[in-house]
Design a binder for these strands. Sequence first.
DNA 1: TATGAATGAGACTTCATTCAT
DNA 2: TATGAATGAAGTCTCATTCAT
Lengths: 204, 204, 204, 204
Amino acid sequence: MEKQKSRTQVINRQKIIDAATRVFAKYGFNGTTLDQIAIMASMSKPNLLYYFKTKRTLYRTVLEDTLNQWLGCLKEWQVEGSARQTISNYIDKKFEFSRDHAFGSRVFVNEILEGAPNLKYLLGEDLKLFVSQNILTIKGWIKSGEIEPIEPIHLIFMIWAVTQHYADFSTQIETLTGKTLADKDFYQEAKKNITQMILRGVLK
Amino acid sequence: MEKQKSRTQVINRQKIIDAATRVFAKYGFNGTTLDQIAIMASMSKPNLLYYFKTKRTLYRTVLEDTLNQWLGCLKEWQVEGSARQTISNYIDKKFEFSRDHAFGSRVFVNEILEGAPNLKYLLGEDLKLFVSQNILTIKGWIKSGEIEPIEPIHLIFMIWAVTQHYADFSTQIETLTGKTLADKDFYQEAKKNITQMILRGVLK
Amino acid sequence: MEKQKSRTQVINRQKIIDAATRVFAKYGFNGTTLDQIAIMASMSKPNLLYYFKTKRTLYRTVLEDTLNQWLGCLKEWQVEGSARQTISNYIDKKFEFSRDHAFGSRVFVNEILEGAPNLKYLLGEDLKLFVSQNILTIKGWIKSGEIEPIEPIHLIFMIWAVTQHYADFSTQIETLTGKTLADKDFYQEAKKNITQMILRGVLK
Amino acid sequence: MEKQKSRTQVINRQKIIDAATRVFAKYGFNGTTLDQIAIMASMSKPNLLYYFKTKRTLYRTVLEDTLNQWLGCLKEWQVEGSARQTISNYIDKKFEFSRDHAFGSRVFVNEILEGAPNLKYLLGEDLKLFVSQNILTIKGWIKSGEIEPIEPIHLIFMIWAVTQHYADFSTQIETLTGKTLADKDFYQEAKKNITQMILRGVLK
DNA sequence: TATGAATGAGACTTCATTCAT
DNA sequence: TATGAATGAAGTCTCATTCAT
């Protein structure tokens, strides 16, 4: 039986998770210190550890939260209407999601770079299932002649790669273009261009 | 004037840089320990520090080496022949490069995630120049009607994003497909699919 | 605004400063290790660093404490009554002070030997002012015919030199005479002899 | 049988001793590094260790050299003529010596501050003998009524203290007066003043 | 004689975690 | 619930010394 959580508990947990997400996003698990998180959460380190027994526990929580949000986003993807509509809608959702959860996305990248030691078992379950369903859908479109005969997995990877790129590499993008994640026009334009190129790339 | 480097110097420096690249690729600057590097380079820690006075010096060397290799690759890109040929050739080069320098690529990603504190001044120079030249080339193709009227920078980002994805996210890819960076068939196929989609996406 | 210091804080800070003074007195800044200080303060090294962030901070605190005590002692020196009384009283005070703050005195010596890198700016302020006031006083005595016409600064240096000698060189003195700093009779006699010689040396 | 020493050997040994004396003078035994000495001697560290097997050996050599020079200076002191002449001559010799061997003097101070672990057995021999002879001489002067009845040892300490002060505390003196060890006028004047005060202080 | 290369021991400092309140 | 105090383990870096040439 889960302990009943007081109001303060809930607020503080979330404050910690938010702070932790930002710091883990920059420095990964090993490179992050609890001090950094505690400062960003305006909280003493012992108090932080009162909510999350260990650094690793906190990290896992952040990872799982992020992954769940991501899977939630992916699952929203309804295969209805034409391939054009479906793909367009998916890119749109993924783009928005990456921008709104940029820190979570980067925690994820860091985890992957480290070899995904905390994530492998999670990736292997839900995500694998989700991907194989997508592949089936895409194969359907190919068979019905809606899109070009490409290997579905690479279309999926391309969409993931491009949409995440704008979130994960925002530093580089900012250096090269002067535009930040917050620049709505720029991101609108990016989304439009990307969608256009991908759609033309696969639609018959 | 550079100090003359003995045979041992050259060999050991390279051994260290190679080891460091691998470890920094996984854990970033803060997350990496000199112990890890020393072990991977089969060398004692003090001896490692005999070659590179500080962790940061070593890191900077790795970063600069990687960036130079990357810029070298980019510069090889000859704009000759049609847009189709040029883009196709570029994706090919970039793909090969990302695979052969996967660790360097990931060091780069980590650096970007940390906000590129050591890289900003480098990114601002050579890379910016290179990108603006590319943009001009692409605009030329648009004007001459060779390709669709897209915003050039997003084409560039798309190519970078996708080609790096296969190198940086190989862990995720491996979990999902069972294929590793070393699987030549898989990567050949990836390259073919990606190239095809991008070309169809922009060519008229 | 200084942080409020708890009871433990005050006690431990002082325990550390006392221990540090003794060790720095023997080995100077470079020659002293935090281990030595921690052991002498009956404290773990990390805990010591909880109170003083760095070795240098601790050292500076010790130096400034010592200097302030010394300046405090010097300032007590009231120019009242005859030259004889004033000088006699000053030697007395300085002698007592050197004996009671022998360790601080030696930290000071070590700092001077190292070229006073941490102290120069302090020496240049309060001490200079104090010395120039003393010089004026002494010149007054010369003008009024109370003492011989000597260069005042050398009288000051002589008093400093001799009074500190018994504190700083107690090891040598002990080897040669068998008497320690704690031997009250010996130090009483020393003070009497020194005072007598100096007074006869300058009084008319 | 001592190994025959080549010309280079002799020169290098001396170069090392000179450099070592300067560095040990500032930082004492523990605070000094062989690197500092090697750099000051324009020599590689291994080569330095070719001449002196260990840091301690080198330090001992420096200490003994210095002590021997000092004892040599003291022994030159001929008790001939009046107390005035003898004392005056002694202060003069000691003053010159301290100035010309300021670095050695400071190595000596450092050793005393550390508790003279390397020196005790040396101090106990020659120096003790020398001091007791001096005491006899001074007692003679007292008995013959040439000087005031003071405790001889304190006269000796006073002379040592003052003459060394100008060498050991030159940093402080420079800060307060602007004069360096090299300023001949200042030191001539110091010597004159000190001699005058001490002589008046003891002569009848 | 001279020095580049190497290293075990140890220095300063940081960090995750615990304890006591 | 919150935090000041404390610490063992580990991290970066230095140092005296040795080895090989």
